[in-house]
Design a protein around this nucleic acid. Structure first.
Length: 424
RNA sequence: GUGAGCGUAGCUCAGUUUGGUAGAGUCCCGGAUUGUGAUUCCGGUAGUCGUGGGUUCGAGUCCCAUCGUUCACCCCA
């Protein structure tokens, strides 16, 4: 008889009311900072053609090879749930002519999808906030992006994040370096672990990022990317560092910091923490000067970053920072006949008219004084208002403080709005 | 995709070693001088023990499979 229970798709989680206040807190704080730097919001489709991602992220990356949710739709088109936000943003910019002799500072928020094995801080549907800047090639905008991300953490009260930066140089310089690295590592092929042997073919730069301690001696002696940078990239990188130093942003240069997506060049950066286990990257980004052209637009320099909201929420939950709630200010207790109830609802509506920011819950469903007070307490309300037949008859209302030791007061109903206005 | 741990009441878990009538706390509902919550006391609701096979007179417990979940590898935000 009982139907089989339908549950959510693996790695795709419901965020319920116990968590939404902290999500709203994070989103509001970050939007406020983006706004203050003059970035403008764009809202982009979750579904794009598969080709967009294979052309931008890179055919041989793990994301494109085995992590995308792709399917053929009714028309026979090959579509993909976006695994990241940059490609769609570039596509939209080209499509609407936003890059034609203009600069743009854009941001977006939304769900991304990757078919990975779920673990802490990594889910198949996850939420990112990202920003992208187009048409500016100098290190000043790289610095602005990094300064803005630093301000996010200050705004949220997070102080356990560290900044790592690196430069990948030009595409040409990186290609030369990549060959040098492959040559070097090939000499030690037998000593490489199986992951690194595989990456030697797929993404050699990632071997530098290996977590296997046995790889460290080999990596330590490997040729350094920074030594192979072209002079323009070196200049760009040193100007960026100078700017960060001047403003007083602390950073570590991590020569092993390479990004997983093919389109990055020059500046790359990550904000990392050791509080989240294996998924320690909270925010990451970099410059991608060739991507717009690669997708079919006019060559346009660009830089961007994205942060995982789930990871920010996890960090806030771990911290001692006060977790915001959305519990009501007032719970209105109504006991008595129909006249009491009717009058109570009218009173509640007049309070909402007079105090638009008031969070007021009116008791629904019957209940004794006792049970209604229990509900009032459980709601987290600071105050309980009591309206019953006595109060109705005398035009009064009782007000009780539920969270502090203060005596209950009896007010004229006509005084109530003024009394509440003067509370905060 | 690989490995390890865990699936018993809405939630947190005991019970599995040694097979024998399904347990606790919490939550929720009601009551303890019928107009006052959060403390205390009493009572009540609540589970085909993840699912499907197998062994057995008998399985939450043993065996196999499968799904889910957690963490790590990998990948990355």
């Amino acid at each position: 008889m009982a139907k089989k229970l339908i549950s959510s798709v693996r790695g795709m989680n419901d965020i319920l009311f116990d968590k939404t206040p902290i999500w709203q807190y994070v989103e509001t704080a970050i939007k406020q900072v983006l706004d203050s730097y003059g970035y403008q919001e764009v809202r982009l489709p979750i579904l794009e053609t598969t080709e967009l991602f294979s052309r931008s992220i890179g055919e041989v990356t793990d994301i494109v090879e085995k992590e995308m949710f792709s399917f053929i739709d009714r028309n026979g088109d090959n579509l993909t749930l976006r695994p990241e936000g940059t490609a769609g943003c570039v596509r939209a910019g080209i499509q609407h002519g936003l890059f034609h002799n203009q600069t743009q500072k854009l941001w977006y928020i939304g769900q991304m999808f990757r078919h990975e094995r779920p673990q802490q801080g990594r889910y198949r549907q996850f939420n990112q906030i990202g920003a992208e800047v187009y048409g500016l090639k100098g290190p000043d905008i790289d610095a602005e992006i990094i300064l803005m991300t630093a301000r996010f953490w200050r705004q949220l009260g997070l102080n356990n994040l560290t900044l790592q930066i690196n430069s990948l140089g030009s595409v040409e310089a990186r290609t030369v370096y990549k060959q040098k690295l492959v040559d070097y590592l090939s000499d030690y092929y037998e000593q490489l672990d199986s992951d690194s042997q595989r990456r030697l073919r797929t993404n050699p730069l990632r071997i530098l990022d290996s977590k296997n301690p046995q790889m460290l001696p080999i990596i330590a002696k490997a040729p350094q990317l920074l030594e192979y940078l072209d002079t323009e990239s070196q200049e760009h990188f040193s100007q960026l560092r100078e700017l960060l130093d001047k403003v007083g942003i602390k950073y570590q240069i991590n020569p092993c910091l390479v990004r997983g997506l093919d389109y990055y060049n020059r500046t790359v950066f990550e904000w990392v923490t050791d509080c989240l286990g294996a998924q320690g990257t909270v925010c990451a980004g970099g410059r991608y000067d060739s991507l717009v052209e690669q997708i079919g637009g006019k060559a346009t320099p660009a830089i961007g970053f994205a942060m995982g909201i789930e990871r920010l929420v996890l960090l806030l939950l771990q911290s001692d920072l006060p977790i915001p709630t959305n519990s009501p200010d007032i719970y209105l207790i109504l006991v008595g006949n129909e006249q009491v109830i009717n009058h109570g609802w009218c009173l509640a509506e007049s309070l909402r008219d007079a105090l638009p920011n008031l969070r007021l819950v009116v008791n629904c469903g019957d209940g004794s004084f006792k049970s209604q007070f229990k509900r009032a307490d459980k709601s987290g309300a600071k105050l309980a208002l009591v309206l019953a037949e006595d109060e109705l008859a005398n035009q009064k209302i009782a007000l009780k403080y539920l969270r502090e030791k203060r005596p209950q007061v009896i007010l004229e109903q006509s005084e109530l709005i003024n009394y509440l206005k003067n509370l905060d």
